[in-house]
């Protein structure tokens, strides 16, 4: 028998002086294979035409639709309602600036992170495009890809106690990016350079290793091992500097 769902959705438009943050209940009949993408669009089409939420790929690959689903950050588009109780809540991700309702501004946050951590391959010179590409060990290319799969969804930030307390903490998303460029043989930076970027409390030393991020990353990035590894490397780098200093 099909269930009647009751979804309590956070609603607020911060630009409207009359708007107050509130939860609004919406009911609808569950259908087989219903995802939150389908459910939220059905609510928008029939009950709440100005309800804000962000879907782009609706296939779990673009990272746009992260929200707090029944208390846990996750991707709405690939969450089946059948995995949730009949009554549940939807909140926007914390930490990020609220646009309205379930929509938050992850774009500016991630852009700032990229600028701060310089998350691009640093080259000595541009390649000669007429020549053979530089070789890379196949296993290394696969390992870099493994860490490159982050979709900047923000789930790890929403889940992270440090990120909620300390503005400026780069979170698992920032740290895994540093791990990615550190691994990439094309990048000319060394550990001293990376230490400059994340060898502080807004970086790896701010992380309390509680690993909420690791459990919630929808792309199942190996955050636990990468964070531990980066901490060791950066601590080593710090010691080297102390000795030299």
């Amino acid at each position: 028998m099909s269930r009647r769902l009751k979804i309590s959705i956070f609603r607020h438009n911060p630009r409207d002086p009359r708007s107050v943050p509130r939860l609004v209940d919406y009911e609808l009949d569950e259908r087989p294979g219903m995802t939150l993408f389908i459910a939220l669009n059905a609510i928008r089409d029939t009950q709440a035409p100005d309800l804000n939420f962000d879907f782009v790929c609706r296939a779990g690959v673009c990272g746009a639709c992260a929200m707090v689903i029944d208390g846990r950050p996750g991707l709405a588009c690939r969450t089946l309602t059948s995995t949730l109780p009949a009554a549940f809540s939807l909140y926007p991700l914390p930490v990020f600036r609220l646009v309205a309702d379930l929509s938050v501004d992850t774009g500016s946050w991630m852009r700032e992170l990229a600028e701060r951590l310089q998350t691009w391959v640093h080259l000595d010179a541009e390649p000669d495009l007429d020549r053979l590409e530089a070789r890379m060990e196949p296993a290394l290319a696969e390992a870099v890809y493994e860490l490159d799969r982050c979709i900047e969804c923000g789930c790890c930030i929403a889940a992270c106690a440090t990120a909620q307390m300390r503005e400026g903490f780069v979170g698992a998303v920032g740290l895994v990016k540093i791990a990615r460029f550190r691994l990439d043989s094309a990048d000319t930076r060394d550990d001293a350079d990376f230490y400059e970027l994340v060898g502080n409390d807004e970086g790896i030393f701010g992380c309390m290793s509680l690993l909420a991020c690791n459990d919630l990353c929808p792309k199942e990035l190996p955050l636990q091992t990468q964070l531990a590894w980066l901490r060791r490397k950066m601590a080593g780098q710090g010691v080297r500097w102390l000795r030299r200093g």
């Binding site: 080259l123 390649p127 094309a186």
Partner: peptide
């Protein structure tokens, strides 16, 4: 081919020949 090679230099971890 130039485009693929440029992207390789800019960080696309293309799968490689083993």
């Amino acid at each position: 081919p130039k485009a693929v090679r440029e992207l390789a230099a800019w960080g696309v971890p293309w799968n490689r020949v083993q």
